[in-house]
């Protein structure tokens, strides 16, 4: 509770993006002290995570889409959205924003949605975790097939 996860996806749908465009957003995010998700593929391509700098040799490469993932306190939601708006104007591609947060005790979500609506978004679609997962005891089985979902 109290945190908001952002997925800032570049190039989707079907437009594509060059890494130099992604780097502009990463630089801007790093400048305001946002930390990048460690297990994200884009983060793994950074030569300097603290500044959001990507590897020099891939900057001109083009990919179908790529996602930068960050997590910030809920109080920073508006600041991050406005920052994305500012930077995306300079990019030669499209951006798809996703914003995720925990619901309250009774499944309500009355914190982030009002912020987004105040910013002008009409919330239509979401992926909803219905909370049926449970922690299971570890086994020595090999890791499962990973899926990008």
């Amino acid at each position: 509770m109290g945190d908001v996860g952002f997925t800032i996806e570049f190039g989707r749908p079907g437009v594509g993006v060059r890494f130099r465009d992604i780097q502009q957003m990463c630089w801007a995010l790093a400048k305001v002290n946002v930390s990048f998700e460690k297990k994200n593929p884009i983060t793994s391509l950074m030569s300097d995570v603290s500044t959001g700098t990507l590897r020099e040799d891939i900057l001109n490469e083009k990919v179908m889409s790529a996602i930068v993932e960050i997590k910030v306190p809920v109080e920073r939601t508006e600041e991050i959205v406005r920052l994305v708006w500012e930077i995306e104007k300079q990019l030669d591609t499209v951006v798809a924003l996703g914003v995720a947060t925990r619901c309250g005790e009774h499944g309500e979500e009355v914190v982030v949605a009002p912020i987004l609506e105040k910013l002008g978004y009409k919330l239509q679609r979401a992926k909803t975790n219905i909370g049926l997962g449970r922690v299971v005891e570890p086994t020595s089985e090999p890791a499962r097939e990973t899926a990008n979902v």
Binding site: V99, A100, T101, E109, R125, A126, N129, I130, G131
Partner: peptide, 8 residues
């Protein structure tokens, strides 16, 4: 609901 991820 446990959590929700909005599409903007």
């Amino acid at each position: 609901r446990h959590s929700v991820g909005y599409s903007l």
